[in-house]
Amino acid sequence: MNETAAIDAKDAAPVYNFAYLDEQTKRMIRRALLKAVAIPGYQVPFASREMPMPYGWGTGGVQVTASVLGPDDVLKVIDQGADDTTNAVAIRGFFEKTARVATTTVTEEATVIQTRHRIPETRLGANQILVYQVPIPEPLRYLEPREVETRKMHGLAEYGLMHVKLYEDIAKHGHIAATYAYPVNVNGRYVMDPSPIPKFDNPKMDDCEALQLFGAGREKRIYAIPPHTSVVSLDFEDHPFKVQEFSEPCALCGSRGVYLDEVILDDRGGRMFVCSDTDYCERHRPEDGTAPVAVWEEER
């Protein structure tokens, strides 16, 4: 399988292997991915490589994407739901250059979607792979810094500590205050950090048709949720899991039931709420091009 992207000699640019990583590395990562798929939610160690970007910019996600990408794939990259932010543009450009794959911003058209901090609003299908960039894969770390101990806790499914964290939230705030990176139990076994997506997106992971892969480059861990796997957000009987609710629709497209970002408009307290998923927002704007009336809120 020689997918080397031929680069014209006259470009005098360095010749990269297809999708940047060498084949041995991709094999190693694919083996880790296979294991991760076989044990949903389990963090598989892998030999994370140096990438031409700093840690924290998605080195884990990029390595996973590089390992699953084929020449016929169509790639979409989002950062906080947006296709047009620096990180998303840079990673998209990276694979355009090193793999020469087609790219898109339209969720339905993509076969591989690399994401930071969001799951697209458009329902994902069986032919798609969602690749998450993960900063800290260990959900137990907040309370138990010893890796040896947290691994043992995963091994023995000792997850009481996870609820200690939720208990603390309720004790301090009256409700479970975690709004992102909200811990989930995968397939009734492993507790997993879904990466810093808003808890609004948690229900989308449950019984999802697409394959979900998670890569943490600095931490050298890969984990996965195979299609149609149960993903349950942790909670208490008397404080059940709830997603964020927005009182107003998106100020640009008028959609309800989607995740909104707050946009500050001026320094007098003016702000509006718009879809965080830019692709979804653009394709849900009224046909006549008139934007709905933006919702302005005065500062209290």
């Binding site: 309370l143 009481g160 500590l161 200690v164 208990y167 004790a171 301090k172 909670d235």
Partner: peptide, 26 residues
Amino acid sequence: RMSVSAGANVGERLMAVGARHYGKIR
């Protein structure tokens, strides 16, 4: 666990054995 409240310290074992009712744990 020095970083969590007294209540969570006492409740941890209960949660570890499956208690999932905040009010009762408290």
